[in-house]
């Protein structure tokens, strides 16, 4: 191997390794985090149960003011309850094996209670959206 060819091989190897090490935060594909964003018609939501369909490794609350409990129903469904002041925006983070499949994930609202613990009679206007 000539010196020039050796240098080329080293640079190529470095590039490949860098590319591989960046992959977890790369929005392109592979494991990563998806956000579940809430759209709510109310300003005094205090708790919500939800369901997420799609392969999920783990679920966490989007911020420290929220308390989250989940239960895995099967390999592709997780149900959970998030308690705390809920507002428009990200409320849950999904840790998934392949972020490129975000469009395949769905999330839905099951129940909502207000800050006085009263159950919402209607869920009209509530939307959960899974985004990268």
């Amino acid at each position: 191997m000539t010196r020039a060819r050796w240098m080329f091989a080293m640079v190529t190897a470095l590039l490949v390794s860098v590319s591989c090490s960046d992959q977890p935060t790369n929005p392109g594909s592979g494991p990563g985090t998806l956000a579940v964003r809430l759209t709510t018609p109310h300003g005094d939501d205090g708790a919500m149960t939800f369901q997420v369909d799609g392969p999920v490794d783990n679920v966490s609350a989007a911020n420290g003011s929220l308390r989250l409990f989940t239960r895995r129903v099967d390999g592709s469904t997780v149900v959970g309850v998030v308690i705390g002041p809920l507002a428009n925006g990200a409320i849950i983070m999904l840790h998934v094996p392949d972020v490129s499949a975000a469009e395949a994930y769905t999330a839905s609202v099951r129940e909502v209670a207000d800050l006085d613990d009263a159950l919402r009679a209607s869920l009209v206007g509530y939307v959960l959206t899974v985004t990268r």
Partner: peptide, 17 residues
């Protein structure tokens, strides 16, 4: 404990916490 609406729901869990 919670909203005494006749069944156990997320509002009741919130109150129980």
């Amino acid at each position: 404990v919670g909203n005494h609406n006749g069944h156990y729901d997320v509002g009741d869990l919130r109150a129980y916490l």
